Computed example of a mutant assay.
Amino acid sequence: MITSFFEHEKIETTTMKAKELKPMIEKMITKARVKNINILRDLLKTIRDKDVAFHLLDEIAPRFSTRPGGYTRIVKTRRRIGDGAEMAILELVESGRSLSDKRKSELAAQKPKKKSSEETKSSDKEVAAKS
């Protein structure tokens, strides 16, 4: 759950799980504010994805460098239909672009652009003129 939280910078879970997760996440952000290899190794014990660990070190922690604590908030949302458990959203206070948003934008940049209708018409005319 911690890996998913740092990847998306927001997670919906039960209120009790969110309350248990919040102190662990805040301690990890506090550690990540000091950027060195020992901290990275310590973070990788909990966060199993290197991209997410680097996202925490390079983007999330610097946003909170001047903040003394209180990096996350719990917002109660609804009751789950199946068992009636109280649901909540655990999110960063100063939310930015999540890692998944960055991956989506990178993939979009890699895809070739489609031709517009005007370009298609002009290329059709060129093919017709050649034949």
Rank of each mutant, 00 (worst) to 15 (best):
E118D: 14
A129Q: 09
L92Y: 05
S117P: 11
A108P: 01
D101P: 08
K114G: 10
K111D: 12
R79Q: 05
R97D: 07
S98T: 05
G96E: 14
I81R: 13
S117H: 14
E91T: 05
K113T: 06
D101S: 14
K115Y: 10
R103G: 00
S117Q: 15
E94F: 03
R79P: 01
A88M: 10
G84M: 01
L107S: 01
Q110C: 00
R79E: 07
L90E: 01
V127M: 13
Q110V: 00
S117D: 15
E126F: 15
E118H: 14
S95H: 11
P112D: 14
A88N: 06
K102L: 10
D124E: 14
L92K: 11
V93C: 09
A88E: 04
V93Y: 13
E91R: 02
K114I: 00
E91C: 01
T120M: 11
A108T: 03
L90M: 03
G82A: 13
E106K: 02
S98E: 04
E94V: 09
S95T: 12
P112W: 09
R80N: 10
T77F: 07
R97T: 04
E118N: 14
A88Q: 09
A129E: 13
K125R: 10
M87R: 08
L107P: 00
R97S: 12
S116A: 07
E86S: 15
I81D: 11
L107M: 04
R97E: 13
L99A: 09
G96K: 10
L99V: 07
K114P: 09
K121F: 11
S95Q: 13
E119P: 01
L92G: 02
R97Q: 13
K121W: 08
K104W: 00
E126D: 14
T77N: 02
M87V: 04
A85G: 08
D83L: 03
E94Q: 09
A129T: 01
E106N: 05
A108Q: 03
L99N: 09
L90R: 03
R80M: 08
G82E: 11
D83A: 05
S98A: 10
G84Y: 01
G84S: 01
G84I: 01
G96Q: 12
K125A: 14
Q110F: 00
G96Y: 13
D124V: 09
Q110M: 06
S95E: 11
G84P: 02
V127P: 08
L99F: 09
A129I: 00
T77G: 05
A88Y: 12
D83C: 03
G82F: 04
A128R: 15
P112E: 14
S98Q: 10
